[in-house]
């Protein structure tokens, strides 16, 4: 496959010296840059303190992060109710749990929306617990909730859109294609603006949704278009013979779809879908723009505090590292899934 897979070729002996020299120069430059950066990040850094004055001049000042840790995690959720946020995130995890269960992964389509609704109910109170308006939700938990809830509802919409795009009915096909292409042409920030200013204008005043719900709905319908493309790739990869065989066995149209075509299509589409989930999680870092206090919003507030002024680099580097760890973890997990699937495919029957 790769060039390095042929170590026995005679050409390996005459390596290109220019390539080595260029590579060495690049590596040296990287080292010269990386060593002081690591020193600043960790070695000379201050980890705890009550204000910027506690921090040394040579290193990063992480004291702000440790001092504001509760807000960074939970936002301004009322004290004493933090357990609800923890339980809400756990509900999302429970809803997604069947994914790990290879034979019953399809069950997730039913459990995940239930988990998402349970999560939102816990956060808001649902009339049973003391009510907490969404203006108080925030922190990293909010990014996770917005990301997971939008992903859970975007996937079914995406599947429906991709099926509609392959429909034999021209009107349905054209409408779905137009929607997917238009949304994919638009930047997310324009869609968020539209949700913030356009939607309140076009719906009756008595239906008014709060800022956060509008953002979640906007992200859901935005990402659904991307998921539709991922699923469409999977649908195109299902051989026509599978459908015909299923019909020949006497399955009805919807049975062919649910039991034969979709399971195979979704399995093929999994890597692309996980990529769009990662994209969605990254996109949630943008919701602070409409005034929601997610992890970025909380830290922007923190650096405008007099005690922590001028710590923007530390704040954003921390947010970046947090997102990076989450996304990198997800992408490793997806790569492991892909390898497992490849092994299962390649295994002798």
């Amino acid at each position: 496959m790769s060039a390095c897979a042929f170590p026995s070729l005679p050409t390996r002996a005459r390596r290109s010296w220019t390539a080595w020299a260029v590579g060495l120069a690049v590596a040296l430059a990287a080292l010269v840059l990386v060593a002081p950066a690591l020193r600043w990040l960790f070695w000379d850094a201050t980890w705890v303190g009550q204000s910027r004055a506690a921090c040394g001049p040579a290193g990063a000042c992480w004291a702000m992060i440790t001092a504001r840790a509760p807000q960074i995690l939970l936002g301004f959720y009322p004290a004493g109710h933090g357990w609800r946020v923890g339980l809400a995130v756990a509900m999302l995890a429970v809803g997604l749990a069947p994914l790990a269960w290879r034979r019953r992964a399809g069950l997730t389509m039913l459990t995940a929306p239930v988990g998402a609704l349970a999560c939102l109910a816990l956060m808001g109170g649902a009339g049973i617990l003391p009510s907490v308006p969404s203006a108080y939700w925030g922190g990293l938990a909010l990014n996770l909730i917005v990301g997971a809830v939008s992903a859970i509802f975007a996937l079914p919409i995406g599947i429906l859109l991709s099926l509609a795009r392959r429909s034999t009915l021209p009107v349905i096909r054209i409408l779905a294609s137009a929607y997917v292409e238009a949304v994919r042409a638009a930047p997310l920030i324009v869609v968020l603006f539209a949700a913030a200013v356009l939607v309140p204008l076009l719906i009756p005043p008595q239906w008014s949704l709060d800022k956060l719900t509008r953002a979640i709905v906007a992200i859901t319908f935005f990402e659904a278009a991307y998921m539709a493309e991922a699923v469409r790739g999977g649908l195109m990869a299902v051989p026509q013979g599978q459908r015909e065989a299923a019909r020949a066995l006497g399955l009805k149209g919807w049975q062919v779809l649910v039991f034969v075509v979709l399971p195979q299509a979704l399995r093929t589409a999994t890597p692309a879908l996980v990529n769009s989930f990662i994209g969605l999680l990254k996109d949630t870092s943008l919701i602070y723009v409409i005034g929601v206090l997610d992890i970025t919003g909380v830290l922007r507030n923190a650096v405008s505090d007099y005690a922590w002024q001028g710590l923007e680099p530390e704040a954003y580097i921390f947010v970046g590292l947090t997102f990076w760890l989450l996304c990198f973890g997800l992408s490793r997990w997806s790569a492991a899934l892909e390898r497992r699937a490849a092994r299962a495919q390649g295994a002798p029957s």
Binding site: I278, K282, D283, S285, V289, T296, P313, Y316, G320, F323
Partner: peptide
């Protein structure tokens, strides 16, 4: 694996 808005802010 880094969100672009955050990279931009950094």
């Amino acid at each position: 694996n880094m969100p672009l808005p955050i990279l931009l802010l950094v």
